[in-house]
């Protein structure tokens, strides 16, 4: 198949493309198995064999051309950043286009740069939607209207704190601790002044928008897939974030009367 091409792609060029492709997908919260499959598929479309080792902060990638015997090995570290479904989805589709439509590598590069530049949801709108979501979540745990309102305000404040602190580039655990503390502090007003009939529910739900649900699910799937190391690494990372949330919540409880709550 590669003989049909006028200019077969260079091993180094394919490797560079795949490095960026894989680290963006992994950092964006793709399952390890999916990244591996995509990389092999793209390699095959370019007529090359790909071997890939993935760790929680780095990847190791070897691309080899069977015909010329050339090969290229590279180690690349993962960029920072939370789950980004839009990117993972778009890159996954791009991988398939390279296989099915024989999209040339240079065009795929441009496409990938375009995908990386895609804007995310505007912060203000995101904040409002997350607050609505958490208020609805409160209702699912049988919270009354007062509790829903408390959770709405608490989430607005907690999520803005999270956005502001992560923009400053602070450590993610510290960000989660402060966000959980601020959100639960607002919601604890309901417990202190006995607002509504379910202030306890409001306090509990107010920090739940922070729970890293997608990383947790990915971790279990990685372990079931056989990528046990990656799965455990992801589970530990998510577990530490949950510990940070619990710490923020317990700070509020100490302030608001600890065991009295």
């Amino acid at each position: 198949m590669t003989t049909e091409r006028q200019t077969p792609p260079d091993v180094r060029r394919v490797s560079e493309f795949l490095q960026t492709f894989c680290v963006v997908m992994l950092a964006g919260g793709a399952q390890t198995l999916r990244v591996e499959r995509n990389a092999r598929r793209i390699g095959m479309a370019c007529g090359m064999a790909v071997e890939l080792a993935m760790f929680s902060r780095h990847i190791m990638l070897t691309v080899s051309d069977g015909a010329s015997g050339e090969s290229c090995t590279a180690v690349r570290s993962l960029p920072a950043g939370g789950p980004n479904f839009t990117r993972v989805q778009a890159l996954n589709a791009l991988g398939w286009r390279m296989v099915n439509e024989r999209l040339p590598l240079e065009e795929a590069w441009q496409e990938m740069e375009h995908i990386l530049a895609l804007p995310s949801v505007p912060p203000l709108r995101l904040c409002l939607l997350v607050a609505c979501a958490n208020a609805a979540f409160c209702r699912l745990f049988d919270g009354d209207a007062v509790a829903m309102l408390l959770v709405f305000v608490a989430t607005l404040i907690g999520f803005s704190v999270r956005q502001a602190l992560s923009r400053m580039g602070m450590n993610l655990k510290i960000v989660y601790l402060f966000a959980a503390f601020c959100a639960s502090l607002v919601a604890s007003c309901g417990v202190v002044w006995q607002l509504g009939t379910t202030p306890q529910t409001a306090l509990g739900v107010s920090v739940l928008f922070l729970i890293p649900g997608i990383p947790l699910i990915n971790a279990v799937q990685d372990i079931l897939d056989g990528h046990v190391l990656m799965g455990i690494a992801r589970a530990v990372q998510a577990g530490m974030l949950i510990a940070a949330i619990a710490l923020g919540l317990s700070l509020t409880m100490l302030l608001a009367g600890g065991a009295g709550i």
Binding site: P83, F85, Q89, C132, A133, A136, F209
Partner: peptide
Amino acid sequence: ADGLFAVVACIGFALISNASRPV
């Protein structure tokens, strides 16, 4: 009502992970 509140909750939480509109 339970289903509707779950729809709102899911959309907001999915947006934190920057999910696209159809998703």
